[in-house]
Nucleic acid binder design. Structure first.
Lengths: 358, 358
DNA sequence: CTGTTAGCGCTTTCAT
DNA sequence: ATGAAAGCGCTAACAG
C-alpha cells in the first residue's frame, strides 16, 4: 500500500535503492561519499544515475538525527539588524557559512540575558553545530550558558567564557588615524571630538572604543604631538558631534579634525558648513567606522573602517576549525580614503615621518 | 553498558520516563501537550516533575523527523543585510517568528536565480515550514521553484508565482506626500526630484516606485496642482539629488521640494546649503523611505516611511495563517514628521483642504 | 486510562 | 563487495 505522504512524495533513499536495484545502505554509502567502503564502479554509477533521475535530495533532518551534525550554526546578537555594524558581521558569516554548505539560524536578543539563554537553548534543541555571538553594544558579556560541547565564538565582545573573541584591532586603528593626519602634514592644529585626552578616561566608553582611544594617545605621544583642542561627548551621536564642533570653533581654528566615529563626523560636517569652513581645504576630517552614509557625505568622509565582514567570516572559520583556539583574534582596521583630507593650508607638504619635538 | 554519548548526555524522553516510572509514550503525551489523551493528574505531575528535575528539553530534530514540522521558516533575500530596507523586514520577521516559537534560517542570494534555487532546496531539505522571499531590487520575480506544498510569501516583490505578496501602499504614500505639502500651504511652487512628470514614465523605475509616482500624480491632479519644476534622475542616489537640486535652483525658486527618496533628499540638502537656502524657512523638504540617516540630518528630514518591520511581521503571519490567502497585502505608509517642513514664506498659513483651481 | 509498537529517513556496524 | 539490521529521539496509533 502506498501511503499518501504529507510532504508530497519526497524521494528517499529507499526509492533510489529500488530503482537502482540495490540496498538502501549501498545508496547511502555512495551518495554521502563514505570514503571507507568499496562499491563497484558500475553499481556506483547506477546509483548515481538513479538518484539523478529521481531528483533525490537528502533529508537533512534525518541525517542530523543520525549523525548529530546539522550543517547549521546559530547566530545570536543583541541587534542583528539596524546598525551597519551588526549587519556587516552577519553578512560575512552568511557568506562564509554558505561557502561551507552551512546555514545560519538567527536570533535577536535585544541584549536581554533571559532571551539570549532561551535562544541558545532552542538552537541547541535544533542541533546547531556551533553558535556565534555578536554584539553591538556590549562591553564584556557574561557567559551565555552554552554547554562546553557546543563550539562558540564571540564577535565584537570579549566574554568571560572560555570561547575566543574576534575583535577589531582598535589600538592600531587609532594609530592609523593619527598617522594619516600627521603624514598629510597636520601636526599642531589637530582637534579631536568624542574624548578629552586631558581628562580621565570616560567611564561609559565601551571596551573597543577605549582601545581606539589608547591607540590615538599612543601614536600622538610617539610623534610628540598634542591636540589643539578636544571635546568629550557622552554619546557619540550626530547631535553631539555638531555641538562639540561648534564649541571647538569658538575657541580654536584647527586644520584637521579627528572624530571618534562617523556619526560625530557627520555632525561636525554640519557645524563646519554653518561656519562656512570648507572640507578639506580649511579643515580635514577623519573618523572611524565607515558607516553607511560615510560615502554619501560631501566630500566623502575618509574613515578608519571596522572590518565587519571579515570578522563575520572569521567567526565561521573559527567554529569550523578543528582544535579549540587559544587566543583572541584582532582583525586589522583599514583606512578608507575618500576626499575629506588634504594638507593644511598654512604649512604645505607632508611632514617628515619621524617624530620631531617642537 | 552506558555508552559515552557524543552530545554530552542530553536528557531524552527515556530518561524522564524511567525517573517518573512510566512509559516513554506517556511522557511524550504530557510534555508535548497532546490534547486527546487522558493521563491521570498524579502521573502527569510526576512526569512534569521528573522532566524539570532532569532539565529535559525536547530534541527538535527528532520531533521534526517524526512530525514534518520544524518550527523554522526560511528567509531568503537578494540582500538580507546592507540596506535598512532589508534589515527592517528581517527584524520584523524575526520578532514575529520569535513570538510564535519559530526560528529563521537565512540566505542571501545577491539576486542570483541559481543561488536562490539552491537556497530554497537546502532549506526544504532542512524541513522548513515555509519560506519568505524578500527583495530590495527586484521588480517582479520569476517563480522561485518552491514546491506547491511549501507555503511561501513575497515581501516587497510581486511574483508571478501563486504566492501572495506584501507591498507598501505606495500609491497612498505618494498621495500623503503631496497632501502634506499642500496642507502646509505649498501650492504652486513645489519642485520634485527623481522623476519628470511631463515626460514618459522612466522605464528603469522599479514597480513600487512607479506606484509612488502614480500616487503623487493623482493627488496633484485631484488638487489641480502642477509642479514648478521637475528633474528625472536615472539613479536615486545622493549624488544625483545634489546635481538635480543645483539644476533646479538655476531655473526656479521653489518653496517646497519633494524628493522621491531620502538619498536624493540628502543630496538636495547639500545643494541647498551651498546655495545658502535654509530648510525649512526658505524651502521645505519632504521625501520617502525614512532611511537610517533621515533623523540625523539637520534639520531632521520629514519623510513618508516604508513600513519595513510591519511587512516583515505580516510575512510571518501569512505563513502561519491556515488557508491560502487570496489577494496581495498593501501595507500603509506613514508620515514621519521631523523638522524639514514649514509654511512657505510668501503665503503664510495652511492652504484650504479642498482643491482649488488657479 | 496507560504501555507497547511501529516507524520518520538516514548512517553504520556486522554478517554474508 | 554488498545487503540486512539496529537504532538516533520522538509521536501516534493501537492494544491492554
Amino acid at each position: 500500500m502506498i501511503p499518501a505522504h504529507p510532504r508530497s512524495s519526497r524521494v528517499t533513499l529507499a526509492r533510489v535503492a529500488k530503482l537502482a536495484g540495490v540496498s538502501i545502505g549501498a545508496v547511502s554509502q555512495v551518495l554521502s561519499d563514505n570514503p571507507n567502503s568499496r562499491i563497484s564502479a558500475t553499481v556506483r554509477a547506477r546509483i548515481i544515475a538513479a538518484a539523478a533521475e529521481l531528483g533525490y535530495r537528502p533529508n537533512m533532518v534525518a541525517r542530523t538525527l543520525r549523525t548529530s551534525k546539522s550543517s547549521t550554526y546559530g547566530f545570536v546578537s543583541d541587534t542583528v539588524t539596524i546598525t551597519r555594524f551588526a549587519t556587516g558581521i552577519l553578512r560575512g558569516s552568511l557568506r562564509a557559512a554558505h561557502e561551507r554548505g552551512y546555514f545560519l539560524l538567527i536570533a535577536e536578543t535585544a541584549g536581554d540575558e533571559e532571551q539570549e539563554k532561551e535562544a541558545v537553548e532552542s538552537m541547541i534543541d535544533r542541533g546547531v553545530d556551533g553558535i556565534v555571538f555578536a554584539a553591538m553594544k556590549s562591553r564584556t558579556s557574561s557567559p551565555h550558558g552554552v554547554p562546553r560541547w557546543v563550539p562558540s565564538v564571540n564577535v565584537n565582545m570579549s566574554s568571560t567564557a572560555e570561547a575566543i573573541s574576534i575583535l577589531p584591532d582598535e589600538l592600531n586603528g587609532g594609530r592609523i588615524a593619527v598617522r594619516t593626519l600627521a603624514e598629510a602634514g597636520h601636526r599642531d592644529r589637530i582637534a579631536i571630538i568624542g574624548h578629552d585626552f586631558r581628562g580621565s578616561p570616560d567611564a561609559h566608553v565601551a571596551l573597543t572604543a577605549r582601545r581606539r582611544i589608547a591607540g590615538i594617545a599612543a601614536e600622538m605621544a610617539d610623534r610628540g604631538l598634542e591636540f589643539l583642542d578636544q571635546r568629550a561627548c557622552d554619546d557619540w551621536q550626530t547631535e553631539q558631534g555638531y555641538l562639540a564642533m561648534r564649541d571647538v570653533l569658538k575657541h580654536a581654528r584647527p586644520t584637521a579634525l579627528l572624530c571618534l566615529n562617523d556619526r560625530l563626523a557627520f555632525g561636525a560636517y554640519q557645524a563646519l558648513a554653518e561656519a562656512h569652513l570648507a572640507i578639506p581645504e580649511d579643515v580635514s576630517v577623519l573618523s572611524f567606522d565607515d558607516d553607511e552614509f560615510a560615502a554619501s557625505l560631501r566630500p566623502g568622509l575618509t574613515t578608519v573602517a571596522i572590518p565587519h565582514e571579515r570578522m563575520g567570516v572569521l567567526a565561521i572559520e573559527v567554529l569550523g576549525a578543528p582544535g579549540p583556539m587559544t587566543s583572541d583574534l584582532l582583525v586589522p582596521m583599514a583606512l578608507h580614503t575618500r576626499e575629506s583630507i588634504a594638507a593644511p593650508k598654512t604649512s604645505r607638504g607632508p611632514a617628515p615621518h619621524t617624530a620631531q619635538d617642537p
